[in-house]
Amino acid sequence: MDFKEALAKARESRPEPVLVPVAVGNDLFNVEVRRLDGMDWAGVMAECPPVTEKGARLGYEAERAALVACRQYSRLLTAEGDVVTGIDWDDLFKLISGTEIGAIAATWWALNMADPNRRVVELKKALAGGGKTSSS
């Protein structure tokens, strides 16, 4: 497969957004988290330089990055799947629990850091083992 074909296939096979449930009072909503284009994710991380030990290990402040990413790239959905408009993400993040913020941050990390890194490792192993390196 040539490079242009590989790019086209990669665009077609982007992971689906993941919905992270959050409680707002007695109502359930879902924050939609998605895989971003590489430079978009790099921009999010650049806005959230590490200031804690955990941030230093990751290279960015995950919870802060979750808020920044949500402001720019997320949607809030009702439990029924309807898009909520006019979201003030700062107010939402002040209201929800630290556990919920952590789940949103972990999902951003998984889709934009862990999964792509895991894929590179898998491809390297396949290449080293002489196996096929392109996905079917």
Rank of each mutant, 00 (worst) to 15 (best):
V18K: 07
V121W: 06
A6Q: 11
E53Y: 12
L92R: 04
A6S: 10
I96P: 03
V31M: 05
D88P: 02
N112A: 04
V31A: 05
R35Y: 10
A23F: 06
V51P: 00
E5D: 10
S135D: 15
A106D: 12
G86M: 08
V120G: 01
R64W: 07
R71G: 02
V33T: 07
L7H: 08
P116T: 07
V22M: 02
G129T: 11
I104P: 00
G98D: 14
L58H: 04
R118E: 13
K125W: 09
I87D: 00
E16T: 09
A110H: 09
V120C: 01
G38L: 11
A126P: 03
V51D: 04
L111R: 01
W109E: 11
G98E: 13
K132Y: 11
A62R: 01
G98R: 08
A69T: 02
V68T: 12
G25K: 03
E47S: 15
G81M: 03
R75F: 09
A126Q: 08
K132F: 13
G130F: 06
A126I: 07
G25D: 07
L28K: 10
L123H: 06
S97D: 03
Y60F: 14
V18E: 03
R11S: 06
A110S: 11
T52K: 07
T133I: 15
N30D: 14
S136P: 12
M1Q: 07
C70G: 03
M39I: 11
V51E: 11
K54C: 01
D88R: 13
I104N: 00
N117V: 05
E80C: 01
T78E: 06
R34P: 01
M39N: 08
S134C: 11
S74A: 15
I104W: 00
K54T: 14
R64I: 06
P49A: 04
R35Q: 15
F29H: 09
E100D: 11
V44H: 04
E16K: 14
M113Q: 13
T85K: 09
A62Q: 01
P49N: 04
W41C: 03
A103L: 05
R118Y: 08
E32A: 09
D2T: 14
V120W: 06
W109H: 10
A114I: 04
V22C: 03
P21D: 03
M1H: 11
K94M: 09
A66I: 02
V33N: 00
A105F: 05
L111D: 01
R64Q: 10
Y73G: 04
